[in-house]
């Protein structure tokens, strides 16, 4: 059988050289994600600056409770995956699978809450900034901007989370098959970095969507 611990691609000096490089690559990829979402945050600044009253009026209609539960879910998801990493480093492969599976389920719970429940609720209240938008009058413009931001931002974040769910599922499968273990952890770490980063993005979106507009 092929010993994964010592084999590596021919441009690397050693397996750990390759593993560290993979982790570094993920950090750089996450750096690109930071500026990617940065553009979204700048659009939030512009939209709110020019239409503060309407924008906040739109934000007041967001579902604070669901948003907060989802924040807790994602934080817990990151925690559980990180616990799994600590465990698999000590050779506790089965415990890792449990943790990763829990993280995966939490991610799924977020998706269901966000898109099956919250989005439907928002759409039922005519919050989609289309023809029959639920907020009329002077504040409609700014509120439409908010809800454009909301649907677009949560969608883009949701796509990231969906990719994360796929990656975590793949890691669970490969660990199950014995391909990754304490001796060869790089993919587990790389996926973990991405998983927590998706959480971080949500941590910033949370006040932008649910909190800032509720001041009186």
């Amino acid at each position: 059988m092929h010993d994964e611990a010592v084999a590596h691609e021919f441009q690397y000096a050693s397996a750990s050289h390759q593993a560290d490089t993979a982790v570094a690559g993920m950090w750089l990829f996450l750096a690109t994600e930071v500026v990617f979402f940065g553009a979204l945050f700048l659009s939030w600044i512009f939209a709110r600056h020019f239409n503060q009253a309407g924008f906040d009026a739109g934000a007041e209609r967001s579902e604070l409770e669901i948003g907060t539960i989802n924040t807790v879910i994602l934080i817990t998801g990151s925690l559980v995956y990180s616990l799994g990493v600590v465990l698999i480093e000590k050779g506790k492969t089965r415990a890792f699978i449990m943790c990763a599976a829990a993280a995966w389920l939490l991610g799924l719970a977020f998706m269901i809450l966000k898109f099956a429940i919250e989005w439907r609720h928002d759409l039922d209240r005519h919050m989609f900034p289309g023809a029959d938008f639920g907020i009329t009058g002077d504040l409609a413009g700014g509120a439409k901007l908010f809800w454009s931001f909301y649907f677009f931002g949560t969608f883009v974040h949701g796509v990231h989370l969906a990719v994360g769910l796929g990656l975590v599922a793949w890691v669970i499968l490969r660990v199950w098959q014995g391909a990754f273990s304490a001796a060869y952890l790089a993919p587990v770490l790389v996926v973990g970095l991405y998983w927590t980063f998706v959480d971080i993005v949500w941590l910033i979106l949370y006040p932008l969507i649910y909190l800032i507009g509720r001041a009186t």
């Binding site: 982790v23 570094a24 950090w27 750089l28 996450l30 750096a31 690109t32 930071v34 940065g38």
Partner: peptide
């Protein structure tokens, strides 16, 4: 991990600051 991890993280924040 290697120091470039931190370098990349700091760079991303710096560029975020420039953008915003």
């Amino acid at each position: 991990g290697p120091g470039i991890n931190r370098l990349f993280a700091v760079a991303s924040l710096l560029w975020l600051l420039i953008l915003l």
